[in-house]
């Protein structure tokens, strides 16, 4: 079968079925959902249906507002809190999203193998102007110290989170993530994906690399720093994914399962979306207020 490569397009299923859920995912038919073909441009981000409900588009304003609230709270307690004006998440952050089929960037594979490029290349960070945090500082900011960290936020951090996200209980806040993971799990077990992984494995074997799946290759016992063998394997991995369109097939099937999840949890997802929009509006107001003063 020939797979046509073109720019990223995910064809959306148009079936609309109203669903009703109180925060726990609604489970529907176990039959694999029908799909429309899609292709993935190697190394490019892939948009999936549930991304629209995840709040990732609002993270930047949320982080900015959080930072301002922390500054104000810490100042009120007699501490300085440094503000950064740099973007909170990199513009190319989407390219870093950890997709379940692994590497698709040939240039990254050739240079870093399966290693995280960020762990090898130094990150640029602002120069600190003070020493490590004192216990008093940590208690005011977080409600814990480095020696005795807690498992929930306290101090100014908790106050800021409550101001922005108090109407987002944990079940609601994690619904989209849980639906995403469930769709991913079903995708991994889908016979269409299984066939694509088998084709990938056959392609790898033809090049002299014996792995049952991209996960097996990525999680092999590679050395501390990528060597020639790791890089060659990673490059073959990416090329075989292109040859078999594994990423395209995987994304297509995953999108179909996500569409089904959206249909079956429509009401709950609209509720999540409304709460996230309200939070983003609150955050935007805080940022705007600070800009005006």
């Amino acid at each position: 079968m020939t797979h046509v490569r073109s720019s990223v397009v995910v064809c959306l299923l148009a079936v609309l079925v109203s669903g009703c859920a109180s925060g726990e995912p609604t489970k529907g038919s176990a039959d694999p959902p029908p799909t429309s073909p899609t292709t993935v441009t190697p190394g490019s981000p892939v948009d999936l249906p549930l991304d629209a409900y995840s709040g990732t588009g609002q993270v930047e304003v949320l982080l900015r507002a959080q930072e301002l609230l922390l500054r104000d709270c810490m100042q009120a307690k007699g501490f300085r809190y440094e503000i950064t004006n740099a973007p909170m998440t990199r513009a190319t952050g989407k390219n870093l999203v950890r997709r379940p089929y692994g590497l698709t960037d040939r240039a990254q594979a050739a240079e870093f193998g399966y290693h995280d490029p960020r762990a090898i290349a130094a990150r640029s960070r602002p120069t600190p102007t003070a020493g490590p945090p004192s216990d008093a500082y940590m208690m005011a900011l977080h409600g814990y110290t480095v020696d005795k960290p807690g498992t929930t936020a306290g101090g100014c951090m908790k106050q800021a989170i409550d101001r922005l996200s108090s109407d987002l209980d944990e079940t609601t806040a994690t619904l989209v993530g849980r639906l995403t993971e469930e769709a991913r799990s079903r995708t991994a077990d889908d016979p269409r994906v299984d066939d694509a992984v088998t084709a990938w494995s056959r392609c790898m074997a033809g090049r002299g690399f014996r792995y049952g799946s991209p996960t097996d290759a990525e999680s092999a016992a590679w050395p501390e720093k990528p060597d020639a063998k790791e890089k060659a394997t990673a490059v073959a991995d990416v090329e075989c994914k292109e040859e078999t369109d594994l990423a395209g097939i995987w994304s297509t099937v995953e999108a179909a399962y996500q569409h089904r999840a959206i249909e079956q949890n429509a009401e709950a997802l609209q509720h999540v979306r409304a709460l996230l929009a309200r939070r983003a509006a609150r955050a935007a107001d805080i940022v705007a207020e600070d800009t005006e003063t």
Partner: peptide, 20 residues
């Protein structure tokens, strides 16, 4: 700190993106 659930703990740097 997770800014939505208020949970605090460790996660692998591999799964996080940030500036600062």
């Amino acid at each position: 700190t997770n800014l939505t659930t208020s949970k605090v703990g460790f996660s692998s740097d591999y799964y996080m993106d940030y500036e600062g």
